[in-house]
Design a protein around this nucleic acid. Structure first.
Ligand SMILES: [Zn+2]
Ligand SMILES: [Zn+2]
Ligand SMILES: [Zn+2]
Ligand SMILES: [Zn+2]
Lengths: 155, 155
DNA sequence: AACATAATTGAGAACCATTCTCAATTATAT
DNA sequence: ATATAATTGAGAATGGTTCTCAATTATGTT
C-alpha cells in the first residue's frame, strides 16, 4: 500500500516517529478510519472500516494500533458500560475538542456534549490539584460521564 | 443455613421482598460480605468471602445477586479500568455516604474521597438538569473518577 | 404440617472482547 | 542493497461474565 505522506498532517506521523515507532500502512488505515468515520468506534468498527482501505489488516493489529495511539495521547479510549471499548480522536487537529459523554443505557447512543464544559473543566482541575496534594497521586486522566435513557428509549 | 432475620436491618430484606424477590441464604451471605469486608470488591472477592459463611454458594449466584442488588439500588457497580467490575454498598444505611474514586492505574489501589464532593454534586446536579433539558435524556447515574499513580507507584 | 408453584440455585459450558504467540514480513538507518 | 529490530496477520488462548438446565427451596395457601 502506498503511504500518502502528509495526508494526515505532519502531527501524527511526527508524533509516532518521535517515539521511535514506525509509520505503516496499517497505522495509516486506522488513522484514516478514525478521521473519516464518526466517533466512539469499537475496535470491530475500526477493523471493518480499515479493512476497506487495507484489506489485509488484522484485528489484533487494530487493537495494537489503538493501544499505541492511546498511549501517545492521540486517541482516547472510553468505556460506556457495555464491555466494548470505544475509541475517538483525542484533542488535536482531527478532534472536536474536549467533551464529555452522555450515554443511553438502552440503545447505546452517545451524545458528545460541551455544555457546562468550562465549569466542569475548572472543577476537575481544582479537584485534581486538591486530590493530588492530599493523597499523593500523580493524576493523569479523569472520566466524567452521565448515563440515562434517551428520549426514544424512555417512552 | 439459618437465616437471621433482621440481622441486616429490615431495609434490605424489605427492599428485596418489595420487588417480589425472595430472601435466600445466598443473598444473605452476599449481604454479609458486602457489609463486613471492605469496599470495591470484585465478584471473585465476594464469592470467596461468602463461601466461608455459606460454602455451597456458586459464582454464578454471586453474579446474579450482585446484579439484582445493583438493580435495586442497594449496591453500586464500578469499573476501574481493569476489566473486573467492583461492587460496594450504595448510599443507604450501610454506606459511608456518596463518594467518588481516585484509582491508581498501576497497583489498582482505590481511594474513596469526599473532598470537593459538595461542589462536585452541585455541578453534577446542575449539569444533569441542563443536559436532561437539552438532549431529552432521563439521567439515572453518573461516573466521576480520577486515574493516576499513587505515591508508591509514581516513584 | 403438607402442598403447590414459581423463584432460585450450583455446576459447568458457552460467550466474547481482548491479548498473546510466533513465524513471516517490512520500515528504517546505514 | 543490507542489516536490524519493529511490525504484522492468523489463530490460539485468556478470563471475566453470562447462559443453560435439572434440582432445590422460599413462600403463600390449604
Ligand atoms: Zn436510547
Ligand atoms: Zn466523544
Ligand atoms: Zn499504585
Ligand atoms: Zn468507593
Amino acid at each position: 500500500m502506498k503511504i500518502l505522506k502528509g495526508h494526515h498532517g505532519n502531527c501524527c506521523c511526527g508524533k509516532i516517529r518521535g517515539f521511535g515507532r514506525r509509520i505503516t500502512p496499517a497505522r495509516h488505515a486506522v488513522l484514516d478510519t478514525l478521521s473519516t468515520r464518526g466517533e466512539h468506534l469499537t475496535a470491530e468498527d475500526v477493523f471493518k472500516a480499515s479493512s476497506r482501505r487495507y484489506p489485509n489488516i488484522g484485528l489484533a493489529t487494530v487493537y495494537r494500533t489503538l493501544e499505541l495511539f492511546t498511549k501517545l495521547g492521540m486517541v482516547s479510549k472510553l468505556d460506556t458500560g457495555d464491555d466494548k471499548a470505544r475509541y475517538e480522536f483525542a484533542d488535536g487537529p482531527h478532534a472536536k475538542g474536549h467533551h464529555h459523554h452522555l450515554v443511553c443505557t438502552s440503545c447505546r447512543r452517545i451524545v458528545d456534549y460541551t455544555d457546562f464544559i468550562k465549569e466542569e473543566m475548572d472543577l476537575l482541575r481544582k479537584t485534581e490539584e486538591g486530590l493530588s496534594k492530599k493523597y499523593g497521586f500523580k493524576i493523569n486522566s479523569h472520566v466524567m460521564q452521565f448515563y440515562g435513557l434517551c428520549r426514544d428509549c424512555a417512552r
